[in-house]
Amino acid sequence: MKKSLLTLICLIFAVGITQAQLLPTFKLGIKGALGFSSLSSDGRFFNSDTKTGFQLGAWGRVGIAGFHVQPEAYYASKRVGVETDLNGGESGEATFKSFDVPLLLGTRIGLGPIGVRIQAGPVFSFAQDGKVNFTTATQWDRYKKTSTGLIGGIGADISKFTVDLRYEHGLTDLNESPDYNQKIRMWTIGVGFAFL
């Protein structure tokens, strides 16, 4: 009798979890993040050091059956340290200001308000003013206004709060010159709040 009762309780619990995962979910929130970026280059034109920038924006999440789509939109300031081979060597910083739109696909593991997420997807960047601000004596103005990349990472949900650790890998050569192959690489750690 006890085994039958225990089996029935486990069955009800399993059906409840399955039905909960089949119901669609929707979240909407705000986020902020610190970004640690560098600019890779295939040539010997310059070396890049990691500098700290930031992201501010909003996110949404639509999920069903344990999977979700999470579009985001945020303003990003990506800073990199630059050391060139020009004019006997120059050093300074470059700032890429952009409006970024990631489209992440992922899954969430957990029960109720606490869970862990794995996410990945493309990111589309649109330069704020089409320029890159360099603090070196040499000015470059041949940078593209749009670029794409891939983002992947892990995150945690604790009630309405979110925490994310991500890596962004640039796919687009940012410089219009065919002589340089420059791509953004960035780690971010962010926090967010879901108000829906």
Rank of each mutant, 00 (worst) to 15 (best):
S4E: 15
S4H: 12
L6T: 13
I12W: 15
I12L: 15
F13N: 13
F13T: 12
L23C: 13
P24W: 14
G29C: 06
G29R: 14
K31T: 12
K31D: 12
S38N: 12
L39Q: 04
S41E: 15
S41H: 14
F45Y: 14
T50V: 12
T52C: 14
G53R: 12
F54I: 14
F54H: 02
W59K: 10
G60E: 13
G63W: 06
F67V: 02
V69G: 10
Q70H: 10
P71A: 11
E72V: 08
Y75G: 05
A76S: 11
S77I: 10
S77A: 10
S77P: 09
K78P: 04
K78E: 06
R79G: 11
V80D: 04
G81E: 05
G81A: 11
T84Y: 09
D85K: 10
G89I: 09
G89S: 09
G89P: 00
E90I: 07
T95A: 10
S98K: 02
F99E: 03
V101W: 05
P102N: 04
P102R: 09
L103E: 05
L104S: 01
L105C: 07
G106D: 03
T107P: 00
G112L: 07
I114G: 05
I114W: 03
R117K: 09
I118A: 05
I118H: 00
Q119I: 03
G121D: 06
A127R: 02
Q128Y: 01
D129K: 01
K131C: 08
K131M: 04
V132N: 02
V132L: 13
N133C: 06
T135Y: 03
T135P: 00
A137Q: 04
T138Q: 04
T138S: 06
D141M: 04
K145G: 09
G153Q: 02
G153I: 00
G153T: 01
G155S: 01
G155C: 06
A156C: 01
V163P: 01
V163M: 07
V163K: 00
D164C: 03
E168A: 08
H169A: 11
D173M: 05
L174M: 11
N175P: 02
E176S: 12
E176V: 09
E176F: 04
K183L: 09
I184H: 00
R185P: 07
R185I: 13
M186C: 13
T188K: 13
I189A: 13
I189S: 11
G190E: 07
G190R: 03
V191H: 07
G192E: 00
F195E: 12
